[in-house]
């Protein structure tokens, strides 16, 4: 199996979610070709941890998030959540499992039904699962709405379009919490929001995580946001994992050339910091025909013949820090320049 390796998976600790060799492919019309959205990735999330997933559009980060929920079922691989193998669960059991894992989406307005009252939207999961009498349900809904900063009275009278984007995202968060889940998958939850509102929502997620003992998988393309909220960060590129590390060390000492490129591309809100000349031009290639070897090799300055033919496996470069690169920025067997000269 040409996976990206499993050296980074943990045996110890309270593993809530363990994904192994996850593959998701979509057919391209009737051409017989396939979009290789996620190509054999493995990762785990400990209870109470926040895992950040970053990468450019098309790297498979959202597909990974959805595949964890079996939306749709992955082509192959295993997803173990709270000890249960989700890929082989019958539909009823899967529906029950989804009450324990919830999702928050990017566009807060289109993820709420425009024709229903907001309070009913938040309550609906309780109605479907027949949790408690009406009075208890409403009490719970109102308490959650207040916690996310929405006036329950207004929520009872208003529809989603009467709220701002930030408020709609707060409503989505309340809805995701109503069934007492353990895992929340946040797919770009703040990308559509203004920076000022983004900060409010991120702080809210941190507060709720502490209060309800949640585990988060936080998918985003903004590295500063991901660093802020995550304990560990996983960088993805074209359906593969490049690097996994505790968030602080990922940012102070990236080991993968792609991570370095992402970090260098962030605009710094300080005019005295010279704008970095973008080291790598171009955009990710098509996931229909991904490059052989290391998938980043066509855009990588350090790429050599080995990178074009042999896929790198994830290996340890520091405590908790793993990288899938033949010539990492640190922790390699030999410096990059020496290696390429030897070849």
């Amino acid at each position: 199996m040409a996976g990206s390796g499993k050296a980074h998976l943990r045996d110890s600790g309270d593993v809530l979610l363990r994904v192994e060799d996850l593959v998701v492919e979509f057919p391209v019309g009737r051409t017989g070709l396939k979009v290789h959205a996620v190509s054999g990735i493995s990762f785990d999330v400990l209870r109470g941890e926040t895992l950040g997933v970053v990468g450019e559009s098309g790297c498979g980060k959202s597909t990974t998030g959805k595949a964890m929920m079996m939306l749709p079922r992955p082509n192959s691989g295993s997803v173990v959540f709270e000890g249960a193998e989700l890929t082989s669960l019958p539909p009823d059991a899967m529906r029950a499992a989804r009450t324990r894992m919830q999702m928050i989406f990017q566009d807060p307005i289109s993820s709420l039904n425009p024709r229903r009252k907001v309070r009913d939207i938040v309550r609906e999961p309780l109605v479907i699962w027949k949790r408690g009498a009406e009075k208890e349900q409403l009490a719970k809904v109102d308490q959650l709405l207040e916690e996310v900063g929405i006036d329950p009275q207004r929520a009872a009278e208003s529809q989603a379009h009467q709220f701002s984007g930030g408020q709609c995202q707060r409503i989505s968060i309340a809805r995701s919490l109503v069934l007492d889940p353990t895992l929340i998958i946040c797919d770009e939850p703040v990308s559509a929001l203004d920076v000022s509102v983004q900060a409010q929502v991120l702080n809210l997620l941190e507060d709720l995580k502490l209060k309800y003992g949640l585990t988060l998988v936080f998918i985003a393309h903004d590295l500063a946001v991901v660093k802020n909220i995550s304990d560990r960060v996983q960088v993805m590129y074209l359906g593969k994992i490049c690097e996994v590390a505790p968030s602080n060390s990922m940012y102070t000492s990236p080991a993968h050339h792609y991570t370095k490129l992402l970090l260098d591309s962030i605009p710094v809100p300080n005019p005295d910091v010279a704008v970095q000349q973008v080291a790598v031009q171009g955009e990710p290639p098509s996931p229909v025909l991904p490059p052989s070897g290391c998938r980043f090799n066509p855009r990588c300055a350090a790429a050599d013949d080995r990178c074009r033919s042999e896929e790198p496996q994830l290996r340890k470069v520091a405590d908790g820090h793993f990288v899938a690169c033949h010539h990492p920025l640190f922790g390699g067997e030999a410096p990059v320049a020496v290696r390429s000269a030897a070849n």
């Binding site: 909220i229 304990d231 970090l263 809100p269």
Partner: peptide, 10 residues
Amino acid sequence: SIPNIEDPSH
């Protein structure tokens, strides 16, 4: 309100 990349996480 912009998250600063230099700040430690959380």
